[in-house]
């Protein structure tokens, strides 16, 4: 489904990765590992199309990514390091906007996704009143409402407690079982059986 051909990227005159080729098939979970500053986030941003300073090709479903960017973006769920949660809005308002541009979810569905992620009672509180872990959970609720085949998650385990970590691992596995693909960066040891690892160091 996703194919990277000879990707190279440098930043501030330092080569982050060179001639990186990778084929990710439906059902794969790929962990991008590497030390701090090794270019994990840059790689994810290159794949998403947020960073254009690279050489090489990104192919999605056999086509160049840029030949049909809108279809590619429709198939992509990206959760960055900064998770895209506005502090002044409540989790439900945030979720409504961030998922609503793809699927018109009802309020009931949104509330359900949040309560599955352990945010009952916090749905209507502005996010700046929530703890870091709760904010991360609120951002991750997007995953329950996703029908995008490709998930790109940058450090999604940050600030999560062990219960939430288990839930997220389950979600990732379920997504892979349904035929989706997941690219994830983390320093956490993933308990996922068929995990593939790409080391950038």
């Amino acid at each position: 489904m996703l194919e990277l051909k000879k990707l190279s990227c440098e930043r501030n005159d330092r080569v982050l990765f060179e001639n990186l080729s990778l084929l990710v098939e439906s059902g794969d979970v790929v962990q991008i590992s590497g030390s701090n500053g090794s270019g994990k986030t840059s790689l994810l941003r290159v794949i998403c199309g947020l960073n254009d300073y690279f050489t090489g090709g990104v192919f999605w479903k056999g086509e160049m990514r840029d030949s049909d960017v809108e279809a590619f973006r429709n198939d992509l769920l990206f959760l960055g390091h900064r998770v895209g949660l506005s502090k002044l809005l409540s989790p439900i308002e945030n979720l409504k906007w961030s998922t609503g541009r793809k699927i018109d979810w009802s309020e009931k569905d949104l509330l359900q996704a949040l309560s599955r992620n352990g945010l009952q009672g916090f749905e209507y509180q502005p996010c700046f009143l929530l703890s870091a872990g709760q904010q991360q959970r609120a951002a991750l609720s997007k995953l329950y409402l996703s029908n995008e085949p490709m998930w790109i998650l940058d450090e999604p385990f940050n600030a999560l407690d062990s219960e939430a970590i288990g839930m997220l691992e389950n979600l990732i596995m379920q997504h892979a079982r349904r035929g989706g693909i997941v690219l994830v960066t983390t320093h956490h040891k993933l308990k996922i059986p068929s995990l593939r690892t790409v080391d950038l160091s």
Binding site: E70, R73, S86
Partner: peptide, 13 residues
Amino acid sequence: EDGSLETLLLSPH
């Protein structure tokens, strides 16, 4: 600052 802009840029519209 909060990353919503990236979400906006990756919108299919």
